[in-house]
């Protein structure tokens, strides 16, 4: 938890934490970590710490942005299909089945290559491909809640879909949405890293995946000392952030499960 707070803090206050700009060379090419550049510099002589700080923004924006859109899509579609049933349900579950069965990375690569590299596109593509899981969970929840007598009663008094959703469904599905929201964040961060790692991000932007991409594609990097700072630090950041979100997601699930029970 504290790591996530730290990461958010870094993302928000990035300009104050680094004395070097993230997009300008400030030192010699590939300086090892030293006093001026605490994590060293990359091949262009740009400070790595500055890049990682700014990359944090990218990762967080992609992570939270994707999670919000995905959860919204998942809730709307899940509630609609669970509540109405019939053909709508059939179509949506078919879509869900399709999306969960096809591997998402190849599709992300193809669509990413097709729509061109930008953060907006990455968020959109990731959201379109990952709403299926929350939608499925929410749909099954709604189906079971729908059978409750108080819903039937509300319907009997003439309550509409929107009213029921707002008053009864949302409070019910809030805990599970929150859990999937957090899971989605970490999934999106990893996906963004892998997409930009594959060279599908804007080649001149800064994100953790892209820093790693340039480092690992540097010819013969393992036969030099450069990997010790250029590869290790961004890699640690990705691993730590994903681990932290995963653990928080787990904890939330536990707490909420206890509540529901």
């Amino acid at each position: 938890m504290s790591f996530i707070v730290l990461v958010c803090f870094i993302a928000i206050f990035a300009p104050m934490l680094t004395k070097h700009p993230w997009n300008q060379p400030t030192g010699a090419s590939l300086e090892p970590p030293n006093k001026a550049h605490i994590l060293g510099t990359d091949d262009l002589g740009i400070d790595l710490w500055a890049q990682i700080c700014y990359g944090t923004r990218n990762s967080i924006v992609v992570g939270i942005g994707t999670a919000i859109i995905t959860c919204f899509l998942g809730i709307v579609l899940g509630v609609v299909s669970g509540y109405y049933g019939g053909i709508i349900d059939l179509v949506i579950t078919a879509l869900i089945d399709m999306l969960t069965s096809i591997p998402s990375l190849p599709i992300m690569i193809v669509t990413g290559a097709f729509f061109g590299p930008s953060i907006k596109n990455i968020i959109l593509i990731l959201s379109i491909l990952s709403w299926a899981m929350p939608a499925r969970i929410i749909r099954s929840k709604i189906i079971s809640v729908k059978q409750e007598t108080y819903i039937k009663v509300a319907e009997g008094y003439g309550a509409g879909f929107l009213y029921i959703t707002y008053k009864h469904f949302l409070p019910q599905i809030f805990p599970i949405s929150l859990a999937s929201f957090i899971k989605l964040i970490s999934k999106a961060i990893v996906s963004e890293a892998s997409l930009s790692f594959l060279g599908l991000g804007d080649p001149t932007s800064k994100s953790w995946g892209l820093i790693l991409n340039y480092a690992l594609n540097f010819p013969g990097i393992y036969f030099t000392d450069y990997w010790k700072w250029w590869v290790v630090y961004p890699l640690c950041c990705i691993i730590l952030l994903v681990l932290a979100t995963a653990i928080i997601g787990r904890e939330f699930e536990k707490i909420l499960d206890a509540k529901i029970d």
Partner: peptide
């Protein structure tokens, strides 16, 4: 080329 482009851009 990506690296050249980045330096040119700056």
């Amino acid at each position: 080329e990506a690296r050249i482009a980045e330096l040119l851009k700056i």
